[in-house]
């Protein structure tokens, strides 16, 4: 092609070098975690950076049994699945109402939901806990599911509202002319149409719920989710890095797997959403 295209390519190649370094740094944690998970404690202390010489899966076994990963894993999956499902339903309902329906106080309600995005967990730690206690939700998975839903809802609602607001109005009008009730419009039209946004939200919220430590620690004090179990492996004084690394590999694997599987769909979903808009 013409000259500018050639120059473009030169710029892009030049940019590729630092971008490659950055990409390598993003992969480094995998190497770090797996490499150290295979060392024993003494081996790690004597050589922290080197490649493992005498690999052993002992740490994985210990992490799995001692940190009761079977039990914690089940808790994490239940709570994350429940919360993500609830988030998608509730935010899609709210998004539909805010974006499509016409009613008084719409702006006010939208404002309240958005403003609550600005209330960080730390700010409401004690009162939030007391609310959980007052509702008898302490140490229940339902309590944690509701808490996650409440904490991640503002962002999800905003996103669904924005997404629905961008859909062609004619679709809704057409559905309504056909005599469909609003709930049916939501179920048969809005939910399927919202798929790209729902998919993106599903992944993001899975990530937030799975990785959360603080809310889970407050609500499920006797039971454990996986990330809390991992955090508890860091003792007062001792940090057994090889054991911690093994636990982290086990804890992150499901999420990484999920991301790798859905990555293509997320990006594709975003693209179709964009075209439709």
């Amino acid at each position: 092609m013409s000259k500018p295209a050639k120059r473009d390519r030169r710029i892009l190649w030049a940019a590729s070098v630092p971008m490659m370094l950055l990409a390598l740094s993003c992969v480094y944690p995998i190497y770090f975690a797996i490499n150290n998970a295979l060392k024993d404690r003494k081996g790690y202390i004597l050589d922290r950076f080197g490649l493992v010489t005498d690999p052993s899966i002992e740490n994985f076994v210990t992490a799995w049994s001692r940190a009761r990963f079977d039990e914690y894993f089940f808790n994490s999956v239940t709570v994350t699945a429940g919360a993500v499902l609830a988030l998608l339903l509730v935010s899609s309902l709210a998004g539909f109402a805010l974006a499509v329906l016409r009613f008084p106080a719409r702006k006010l309600i939208f404002g309240v939901i958005l403003a609550s995005l600005m209330i960080p967990v730390q700010v409401v730690l004690v009162p939030f806990y007391q609310t959980i206690v007052a509702l008898e939700l302490l140490n229940t998975r339902i309590g944690l599911i509701l808490s996650y839903t409440a904490f991640f809802l503002p962002f999800s609602t905003y996103l669904m509202t924005a997404f629905y607001a961008a859909l062609p109005r004619e679709l809704v009008d057409a559905a309504r002319v056909d005599g469909a009730k609003f709930l049916q419009v939501w179920w048969y039209v809005m939910l399927p149409m919202g798929k790209p946004a729902l998919l993106t939200l599903g992944i993001l919220n899975t990530l937030y719920c799975w990785n959360d430590v603080l809310i889970s620690l407050l609500v499920l004090q006797d039971e454990r989710t996986l990330m809390v179990g991992i955090a508890a492996l860091r003792g007062e004084y001792t940090t057994n890095v090889p054991l911690l690394s093994a636990a982290i590999v086990l804890g992150a694997a499901p999420i990484v797997l999920l991301y790798v599987i859905f990555q293509r769909k997320i990006v594709a979903g975003i693209a179709t959403g964009a075209v439709k808009g």
Binding site: A94, V112, F128, L153
Partner: peptide, 15 residues
Amino acid sequence: MLLPALALVLIFRVI
């Protein structure tokens, strides 16, 4: 449709 969202936000964050 807004009730679930509003209830959750009010109970767990605003209050």
